[in-house]
Design a protein around this nucleic acid. Sequence first.
DNA 1: CGGATGATTGAGAAGTCTCAACCGTGGTGG
DNA 2: CCACCACGGTTGAGACTTCTCAATCATCCG
Lengths: 245, 245
Amino acid sequence: MNPVTKGEFAPAPVRWFLARLMAHTELDDEEQRAILRLHGQAAEVRAGGVIAVQGTTIVHSHLVARGILAQFDEASDGRRKATRLFVPGDMCGLQTVECPTIAWGLCAFTSCTVLHVPHDELRKLVNRFSGIRRALWREMAIDASVRSKWTGNAALKNGAERAAHLICELSLRMERVGLCDRNAFNLDASQPQLCQALGLTPVHTNRVLGELRRKGLISTGRRAITVGDWNGLRKLAEFDPAYLY
Amino acid sequence: MNPVTKGEFAPAPVRWFLARLMAHTELDDEEQRAILRLHGQAAEVRAGGVIAVQGTTIVHSHLVARGILAQFDEASDGRRKATRLFVPGDMCGLQTVECPTIAWGLCAFTSCTVLHVPHDELRKLVNRFSGIRRALWREMAIDASVRSKWTGNAALKNGAERAAHLICELSLRMERVGLCDRNAFNLDASQPQLCQALGLTPVHTNRVLGELRRKGLISTGRRAITVGDWNGLRKLAEFDPAYLY
DNA sequence: CGGATGATTGAGAAGTCTCAACCGTGGTGG
DNA sequence: CCACCACGGTTGAGACTTCTCAATCATCCG
């Protein structure tokens, strides 16, 4: 069996993950096969459902198979702020392989399916294959870059700009996996969920989305946002995809 | 020459860096010696001075020897937001070893001295020593955790709370290096610099600092903030050092 | 001494929050 | 099948946080 054939039998999220890595790092056949052999128990989680609790120790990373996963920080009064979102094919928590006690929480941003990939398996790959080591290092570099942009956005952009930026980022990342066209991106998140990603109250999130809608940039439905004018969103948000590599 | 003796002759920032790593990862003698042999050209930078420009490709990481270094994100109108600060002994830009084109900028938060450590050297260490690999992986995990906290803070805390949180974080990190006592921490940053870290305007930064001063939590001078009541700051900021590991 | 920079204060505007109410939809139990 | 309820979306009004513009003062450096 050649690796391509084997690849076709690997679960889609694992193939997406491999494609992600190969977008920035050359991996030889053996390394590709090793990635494709990754597996983990699948779990379905409804929007808002908690997957991992702040302060606990976990023994696996989370590979997104469907929907969107959120890392979040929580205030003492329970308010949450998403600090990073993960789309299908993303391996969330690569850092936790060597640092398994998490200072952040993990929840489902939209209804989603995650594969629990044991840290042990990832650790073995890293120790054995220099290409995979390089690839995961780069994944963490991209992760840091995205976090940096989010921190910057929180201070440098207002609500509408942040919302536009978020939609640009998610649509582009979903497009790269091959799950949508950026001009026809549909996000099935409720406004109460969205407001955690934007760092706004539900009421103001509603007003900001209304503003984007009135400008013809998006259309909204119950639990759904659809891109209407991607370029308009990009301009409003000053979205520059360089930070996504 | 035994490693300890040699270590005493390594530059202080390199020894601090080694101590940082050994706080979370066991390294054998050979690995310790390898770290202590790290070196790089030193550069002095005045507060606000740019060290690396967004979008360029760099060939070394930056080890802080004195002062505080800032990664920042920049808006098109030139406003900057610091997204991560680095104190002496911190290796800034570990991620860039395998991803050298930076999507963020780098500048001096306070007047500082940095050592330019070639990526090549770090890459060699990582490929050769599994302990160092693990240690740097953990450094990147802590980095992600801190970034996550900063993103959360931007949305979950107001100006005064963020200022208190920043002072708590920096004083604790400086204390760990052995450069100060948290109750006697002095930050020699001007308010125009501080405002970039807090995500506030200079005017509002001034008002927020005045509020902390009136509460007896800090005292301020020209280009300086001194901790007056660390526990008071901690309570106000709801500072929990877990995210620093 | 003069100019640049930082700290401080005031006043009004903009962005966002809070509280409140109302509506539509979808699911649930009687 | 219907009544009801939970939830999400929407809108209004007023309050609070932060920004903007402006002015003043002190300090440091040339």
